[in-house]
Write a protein that binds this DNA or RNA. Structure first.
Length: 448
RNA sequence: GACCCUAUGGUCUAGCGGUUAGGACAUUCCCCUUUCACGGGAAUAGCCCGGGUUCGAUUCCCGGUAGGGUCGCCA
């Protein structure tokens, strides 16, 4: 029998990075085994559910390239879905829960409590949780559970609780492997007891370690980087985030780091999942991002670049396409995230150059003024203003003045871009064009 | 408070009853170079502690410590 796995998020308005990894691991397992990946929306808490909140999840998964074989097609709970185990929204599965409750009550495995709730007659014995990642875990009752082992299945307002609906859905959807965060490990005893009450053997469990903040604390909603969307907003590439997530809690061995998803699918399996939590390392993600960014297809680099500028309030669509493309070309291989782009190359799209203070102190010194004027003069005489000619002119001028070319390069870069670092000077000057370059140098020379 | 999980450089990890404990990120230095980035080279840094088992433990067992999780009419 082919595995059936599921990702069952609750629509809270954001997709936690740990949730995204859980989805990814489920997806990887399904793809590795040729099984089925089901997406189910646990919208039992009507108070905080909305279609927008579901869309955040759907869009997040889609951005990562995680597709589901069964599940909703839109964020609308009553909208279309694919798969024959629907509905895939818990809010639409109420009859199932009602039926299951009645079945339990008819056999006295559940009962109506004095405060209006329906409770489950929980086993008093320790429960063995066989886990594909952690191994066998024997879970006795805690002292509080000892005092009152039975737990609520249906609230007094008639709403069934998570532990109950989760199990009913897994059962009815034919889920064979439950791959989820380790925060559910202890609760699995409840789930196993319920499955048995329904007369079926529970699915296989694989509890994966959690993702922690860099300081080791739990990553909660407000922490930086907790929301998957924040990576999209910060200009990260889905393939980089995906690749990084694969490396947290799972290892391909062989000293591999950067690897195509297809290779991960081939190698991925449950036993290799690590048992300990992992701290999120933003630096390493950024490194991977840089690797992927460097080899981006030109069209995609251009598209993402334009988008990044637009987000920074720079509308490049009004400008000459060739100019924008040429400008972006000089940034390839230089930046790691697109969020850096406006600061890195914004000088292409503004008339107001703001000179870096520290660099200005170094470069805009009296002896450089005549040098800069000499450079401007040399540039002015160039019949063709291309990178090669610019380089030659700069070198010739340096030779004429008896200085190293670097002496000329730094003030020229600062005068034309405002920054001490940036794209190749020769190429960026070519893109800027002769008139603009001469104007910028002249303007800068007046500053000191 | 009870119960559960975990423990290799700062971080992610490989590994093993006997290894010079391997790789990657980060850090530092050198080379390359028009800056930065890339690339190449080098360096710093690790088996949580205490017992046991064993000829020999980073590796197996127990305890401790630390971190994380769970014990809801949240999911």
């Amino acid at each position: 029998m082919k595995p059936r796995v599921r990702f069952a998020p609750s629509p809270t308005g954001y997709l936690h990075i740990g949730g995204a990894r859980t989805a990814l691991f489920n997806w990887l397992y399904a793809r590795h085994t040729g099984g089925t990946f089901v997406l189910r929306i646990e919208d039992t808490d009507a108070a905080r559910n909305s279609q927008e909140a579901v869309d955040v999840i759907l869009n997040g998964l889609r951005w990562l390239g995680i597709d589901w074989d069964e599940g909703p097609i839109t964020g609308d709970a009553t909208g279309p879905s694919k798969g024959d185990h629907g509905p895939y929204f818990q809010s639409q599965r109420k009859e199932n829960y009602q039926r299951r409750i009645e079945a339990l009550m008819s056999r006295d495995l559940a009962y109506k409590h004095a405060d209006g709730t329906i409770k489950f007659r929980m086993t008093r014995e320790p429960i063995l949780i066989p886990d594909l990642v952690v191994g066998d875990v024997l879970r006795p009752l805690t002292d509080r559970e000892e005092a009152d082992p039975d737990w609520v299945l249906v609230r007094s307002d008639g709403q069934p609780v998570f532990h109950f609906v989760n199990v009913v859905d897994d059962l009815e959807m034919g889920i064979t492997h439950v791959i989820r965060g380790e925060d559910h490990l202890s609760n699995t005893a409840k789930h196993i007891a319920l499955f048995r009450a329904f007369g079926v053997e529970p699915p296989k469990y694989a509890h994966i370690p959690l993702i922690l903040n860099a300081d080791g604390s739990k990553m909660s909603k407000r922490d930086k980087g907790a929301s998957l969307t924040s990576y999209l907003d910060d200009g990260f590439l889905a393939e980089a985030v995906n690749n990084y997530l694969c490396l947290l809690g799972w290892s391909p061995k062989d000293n591999l780091e950067k690897m195509p998803l297809a290779d991960v699918v081939e190698r991925f399996d449950l036993p290799q999942i690590l048992r300990h939590n992992a701290k999120f390392d933003y630096e390493k993600l950024t490194w991977l991002q840089g690797e992927y960014c460097r080899e981006l297809a030109p069209d995609r680099f251009y598209e993402l670049g334009v988008h990044a500028f637009a987000k920074a309030g720079i509308d490049t669509n009004k400008l000459d396409v060739h100019y924008v493309k040429a400008a972006l070309d000089t940034c390839r291989g230089k930046i790691k995230t697109f969020a850096e782009l406006p600061a890195y190359a914004g000088f292409y799209f503004t008339d107001v150059i703001i000179y870096d203070g520290e660099a200005a102190q170094k470069s805009f010194v009296p002896e450089n003024k005549p040098r800069l004027e000499k450079v401007r003069e040399a540039f002015g005489k160039l019949p063709a203003f291309d990178a090669a000619s610019i380089e030659a002119a700069l070198k010739a001028t340096a030779a004429e003045l008896g200085v190293k070319v670097g002496i000329l390069i730094h003030p020229t870069r600062l005068a034309t871009t405002g920054h001490p670092h940036g794209p190749s000077l020769y190429h960026l000057l070519e893109v800027l064009g002769k008139d603009e370059v001469l104007a910028r140098i002249e303007k800068a020379a007046k500053k000191f």
